[in-house]
Design a protein around this nucleic acid. Structure first.
Lengths: 215, 215
DNA sequence: ACCTGAACACCGTTCAAGT
DNA sequence: ACCTGAACACCGTTCAAGT
């Protein structure tokens, strides 16, 4: 029989109560497994075993769900501050950006969402960390913002490109056939590039040269 | 009376016949004026004075509309090839990237779409152009792909950030209030940055140093 | 070859209510 | 304070037809 087997003892509070954290986690799960289009309020509610409209207690609208998911995934544990003094600036920056990039590659939807949503606390923490390392390394206050934005742009750009190639390859394994007019880039195999990690680190080195040299 | 005033002379082919170009143009118009969410198949059909399903003759599905719109906006007229010989490599690259960036800033939706769709012919033309200039300036074949992707990543990243700040400012004019824990970035006014063009050109210079120096 | 309306299986969200 | 179902005004797309 479908009824509860337990003897009724008044309203047992449902163990599956909602919370911001639960909504966030469920949203991430759906995004990871079914992509951006797979995240619907109805699917989310079903996954949580709740009514659809219950979600709206924790969130203003669907964009709120995206914000929760994004911040959930961007969780960041800054290194203890006494480590900060001993660490090399260059290595520190690279570590932050690599960790950031890895998070986004693990949750490909996040890189498309990141620039479309407001900056959550976890992202701000990462930026603050960058500021701390750079200024300790002697980057002037006047150059700090430019430096941080350059690094931000770099990670976002590089990871976006990377993810979009992953998606493209998933859809059709071989690169598109190129017209005769594209002799150079078809010769060089631009669209068949595969050393993405190398390109990432190489470009980052160039950028850091420019940033730190001025300090 | 609502009837045609002209005397019926058999089927006058409707002047508003559809075509790929017309669909593309209408889609761009809707995207520009109503944003990504404002582009629906129904709105598009209404704007064109056709039935909704007529669109599907020119396009497989809605993604096809996005592809048309993106390529339409990315139209590119490469400089005549005799100009190519006289032009400075650095100036040439900057000109291409600046034009590209301006196009995207004029159609903010395009920068979010770009990494999500397949590369249309107009974008490929821009990449081929970059390849031509760089290799003429002596960038080795082995370094060419890395150089092009670095530049690509840079424009995409920088423009994405720029556009997302424009949108944010449109929604609420003042930057978000920062917690006490974000002392450095609130001191430096990171989120109130306003010299975007300067940051763009500055970072590009650093990048080009790295690319051309090795040549 | 090109265009169409009706119908289907979805969406996000408002509302008025329940506990 | 927290949760809910019914209903509304939309979506993209399939299908079976029309010219």
């Amino acid at each position: 029989m479908p009824k509860k087997s337990k003897k009724s003892q008044a309203k047992q509070p449902p163990a599956d109560n909602l919370s911001h954290a639960k909504v966030a986690e469920a949203a991430v799960h759906l995004l990871d497994t079914r992509g951006t289009r797979g995240l619907t309020m109805r699917a989310l509610a079903e996954h949580l075993g709740s009514g659809v409209m219950s979600l709206y207690w924790y969130v203003d609208n669907k964009d709120g769900v995206f914000d929760l998911a994004l911040d959930f995934v961007m969780q960041y544990n800054p290194p203890a501050s006494h480590d900060l003094d001993t660490i090399d600036c260059r290595a520190g920056v690279i570590a932050i950006l690599q960790d950031w990039r890895e998070v986004m590659l693990k949750h490909p939807w996040s890189v498309f969402l990141l620039p479309q949503r407001t900056l959550g606390p976890n992202i701000l923490t990462r930026l603050e960390m960058l500021a701390k390392i750079l200024s300790r390394a002697g980057v002037q206050d006047s150059a700090l913002n430019t430096a941080i934005w350059s690094l931000w742009n770099y990670v976002v750009g590089a990871t976006t490109t990377r993810v979009s190639f992953l998606i493209q390859m998933e859809k059709s394994p071989d690169p598109p056939v190129l017209d005769d007019s594209f002799t150079l880039i078809s010769q060089s195999g631009l669209l068949m590039s595969d050393d993405w990690d190398g390109v990432f680190l190489g470009g980052l080195d160039m950028l850091l040269d420019g940033i730190i040299e001025d300090a």
